[in-house]
Design a protein around this nucleic acid. Structure first.
Length: 343
DNA sequence: CTAGGATCCTGTCAGC
DNA sequence: TGCTGACAGGATCCTA
C-alpha cells in the first residue's frame, strides 16, 4: 500500500520519535532487506584518517561481511552474531557508533533518514513494508497495514531492527520487496531510482504532464501514472482515485487525452493525495486503537479502490474491477468511459 | 527510444 | 480438510 501519502505519514510520524536520537545498532534479520552501500572508510571517517592508502577491501554486500565477521570486522563497524538467548534465525548485528538521526526526507515513495558522519538510510517499503516504532515515549506504526501493527515484535516478517536508547524501530516486510540501504548521503541523489524520479504532482504544471503523456502516447494512462519517472508518488490506489476524480478511463492511450482531461487528472491526483496526507496521521493512528479494533482506513477514504460491487458515489452505477496494465483497476463504467476516438 | 510482460517473495483466499 | 492457482497497494529487468 505505501504510496506517497503513506510514506509522508511515516516520515512525519517517525520524526517525532527518532530525530536527534542515536542509533545504537542495527540488527539485520534478512540480508536481502539490508543493502550496505557504504564504502569501508566512510563508516568511521574520524577514527582512521589515514586509511585511504591502506589495502581496504572494496565495498561489499552485508552478507559477505557477516560471513567473514569473526576474522576481520571492518573499520568502525562490527558484525557480530546475536547471543544465543535472543537469537532469531541467525540475525546479525551491525554496530554503527555515534550515528545520530539528523533529518528525515522523502523522495517520491522513498524515505531517506540522514545520519551524522555523512551516512544515510534509504528505505523503500514497496508492497508490504512497514515501519513500527516501539518506544518508552510512545508507539507508532505505518506502512502496509497488518496485524504486525499490534503484534509482538520482532516476528517472522521482521527484516531489520534499528535499536535506539529509548526504543526500537522495526522494519517489517512480508514479501521482501522493500529494503533498507545504508549509503553515503552524497550518493542519495545519485541513486538510480531517485535520480530518475519525476516531479511530484504539486511540483508539476498541467502542460508538463500533458507533454509527458504525449511522450508516452501509446501507453495506457494508468500505466503512465504508475511510472515514477513521469510523475512521482502515485501507486495503484491513487492512480485509480485520480482517474475517477477526472472521469477518465484507465485504458485510454495517454496520447489521446485532451489538455482538459490531463488537467483534471493532475488536479485529481493532487486532491486525493493531499487529503490522504492530511488524513494520514489520524487514520493511521486510529488504525490501531487502544481497544484493538481495526478498520480498513481505505474504506473511508477511497471512492473506487476496493469498492467493486458498490455504488459509484457520483452516479450510483456499479463500480467494477478490471485489469489494466497488469494491475487490478477500479472504475465506474458510467463516469469513466473509454470512448471510441484513439482507443 | 518505448511498451508490455515476467519477475522478485510470502501469504491469503476462492474453488474443487 | 488439503490442494491448486490467482492475486496482492512496487519497481526493475528483459524482450520485441
Amino acid at each position: 500500500m505505501p504510496e506517497l501519502p503513506e510514506v509522508e505519514t511515516v516520515r512525519r510520524g517517525l520524526k517525532k520519535y527518532i530525530l536527534n536520537k542515536k542509533i545504537i545498532r542495527i540488527v539485520v534479520f534478512e540480508d536481502k532487506s539490508f543493502k550496505d552501500a557504504l564504502p569501508d572508510d566512510s563508516r568511521h571517517a574520524s577514527s582512521r584518517p589515514s586509511s585511504r592508502g591502506s589495502s581496504l577491501t572494496r565495498s561489499q554486500p552485508v552478507a559477505k561481511c557477516l560471513e567473514s565477521s569473526d576474522k576481520a570486522p571492518r573499520l568502525g563497524a562490527k558484525y557480530l552474531k546475536l547471543p544465543d538467548e535472543t537469537s532469531q534465525s541467525g540475525a546479525k548485528y551491525l554496530e554503527l557508533p555515534d550515528k545520530t538521526i539528523q533529518g528525515l526526507k522523502r523522495f517520491g515513495k522513498a524515505l531517506v533518514i540522514d545520519l551524522d558522519d555523512g551516512c544515510s538510510l534509504m528505505i523503500h517499503l514497496r508492497m508490504t513494508g512497514q515501519l513500527i516504532w516501539r518506544g518508552e515515549t510512545g508507539e507508532f506504526a505505518a506502512g502496509h497495514p497488518s496485524e504486525n501493527f499490534v503484534a509482538e515484535l520482532p516476528n517472522k516478517q521482521t527484516r531489520v531492527v534499528f535499536e535506539f536508547e529509548d526504543g526500537k524501530l522495526f522494519f517489517n516486510d512480508q514479501r521482501k520487496f522493500g529494503f533498507v540501504k545504508l549509503m553515503p548521503t552524497t550518493e542519495v541523489e545519485k541513486d538510480a531510482f531517485i535520480k530518475k524520479l519525476g516531479p511530484e504532482p504539486w511540483e508539476m504544471s498541467e502542460n508538463e504532464l500533458y507533454e509527458r503523456c504525449q511522450r508516452h502516447g501509446k501507453a495506457l494512462i494508468k500505466a503512465v501514472l504508475l511510472n515514477q519517472e513521469v510523475i512521482a508518488g502515485l501507486g495503484n490506489i491513487y492512480a485509480d482515485e485520480a482517474l475517477f476524480a477526472a472521469g477518465v478511463h484507465p485504458e485510454r492511450r495517454a496520447g489521446s487525452l485532451t489538455k482538459t482531461e490531463v488537467t483534471k487528472i493532475l488536479a485529481g491526483a493532487k486532491k486525493v493525495m493531499k487529503s490522504a496526507i492530511e488524513a494520514g496521521g489520524s487514520t493511521m493512528a486510529t488504525y490501531v486503537k487502544a481497544d484493538g479494533t481495526r478498520g480498513n482506513y481505505l474504506d473511508e477514504f477511497a471512492q473506487v479502490f476496493g469498492k467493486q460491487g458498490q455504488e459509484c458515489p457520483k452516479c450510483g452505477a456499479e463500480i467494477v474491477k478490471i485489469r489494466v496494465a497488469g494491475r487490478g483497476t477500479h472504475i465506474c463504467p458510467h463516469c469513466q468511459q473509454k470512448g471510441k476516438k484513439n482507443d
